[in-house]
Amino acid sequence: MARGITEDEVWKACDALLLEGARPTIERVRQKLGRGSPNTVSPMLETWFKHLGGRIKDPRAFSAPASMPDPVYQAAQHLWEAAQAEARLDFDDRLKAGLAGAAASVDIEKDRAALADAAASAAAIKANALQAELAQSREALDGERAAHAATAARLDDARLQTGDLQADLAAVRRAADETRARADAAISAADERAHGAERRAALEIERERLLRSKAEKSTESIAKRFEEALKAQIAASEQLNAVEGRLTQLKTDARQREQSLQALVDDRDARIRLLEAELVDAQRELAGRTAQEVLMSELVAKLAPISAVPKESRSVKPRGARSKNSGA
Score class of each variant (00 low, 15 high):
residue 11 W to Y: 15
residue 6 T to S: 00
residue 211 L to T: 05
residue 125 I to K: 13
residue 320 G to H: 15
residue 39 N to G: 14
residue 43 P to W: 06
residue 123 A to Q: 01
residue 150 A to V: 13
residue 39 N to P: 11
residue 271 R to F: 06
residue 188 S to W: 06
residue 20 E to F: 09
residue 169 L to M: 14
residue 274 L to I: 11
residue 141 L to W: 05
residue 30 R to Q: 14
residue 290 T to I: 10
residue 236 A to G: 01
residue 102 A to Y: 03
residue 131 Q to K: 04
residue 186 A to F: 00
residue 263 A to E: 05
residue 25 T to Y: 05
residue 19 L to F: 02
residue 11 W to Q: 12
residue 122 A to V: 03
residue 168 D to R: 10
residue 173 R to Q: 09
residue 280 V to Q: 06
residue 296 M to P: 00
residue 119 A to R: 03
residue 271 R to S: 06
residue 75 A to P: 02
residue 55 R to K: 09
residue 63 S to H: 13
residue 220 E to P: 10
residue 261 L to H: 00
residue 100 A to E: 13
residue 225 R to N: 08
residue 274 L to A: 14
residue 3 R to S: 05
residue 274 L to N: 11
residue 179 T to G: 00
residue 230 L to Q: 15
residue 291 A to F: 02
residue 181 A to L: 04
residue 280 V to P: 04
residue 270 A to W: 05
residue 46 E to W: 06
residue 285 E to I: 05
residue 307 S to G: 07
residue 246 R to A: 07
residue 5 I to W: 01
residue 322 R to H: 10
residue 203 L to T: 02
residue 195 H to F: 15
residue 61 A to I: 04
residue 294 V to P: 04
residue 67 S to G: 12
residue 321 A to R: 12
residue 260 S to T: 13
residue 154 R to N: 03
residue 328 A to L: 12
residue 133 E to D: 00
residue 194 A to T: 03
residue 264 L to S: 12
residue 188 S to M: 06
residue 277 A to K: 15
residue 163 G to K: 10
residue 174 R to L: 12
residue 59 P to K: 00
residue 102 A to C: 08
residue 220 E to W: 11
residue 163 G to R: 10
residue 160 L to P: 05
residue 12 K to T: 14
residue 53 G to Q: 11
residue 231 K to F: 14
residue 262 Q to D: 14
residue 29 V to R: 04
residue 198 E to C: 07
residue 248 T to F: 07
residue 218 S to F: 10
residue 193 R to W: 04
residue 227 E to V: 09
residue 12 K to Y: 12
residue 189 A to G: 07
residue 35 R to C: 06
residue 97 A to Q: 03
residue 125 I to T: 11
residue 18 L to N: 05
residue 186 A to S: 03
residue 36 G to L: 02
residue 290 T to K: 14
residue 178 E to S: 07
residue 111 D to F: 15
residue 36 G to S: 07
residue 208 E to R: 14
residue 66 A to S: 01
residue 236 A to W: 04
residue 239 Q to P: 00
residue 149 A to W: 12
residue 290 T to C: 07
residue 60 R to M: 01
residue 178 E to A: 09
residue 149 A to G: 13
residue 178 E to Y: 03
residue 287 A to N: 07
residue 10 V to A: 02
residue 172 V to M: 10
residue 170 A to K: 01
residue 207 R to I: 09
residue 200 R to C: 06
residue 224 K to C: 11
residue 83 A to D: 15
residue 56 I to D: 01
residue 232 A to T: 05
residue 257 R to L: 05
residue 306 I to K: 09
residue 159 R to W: 06
residue 11 W to P: 08
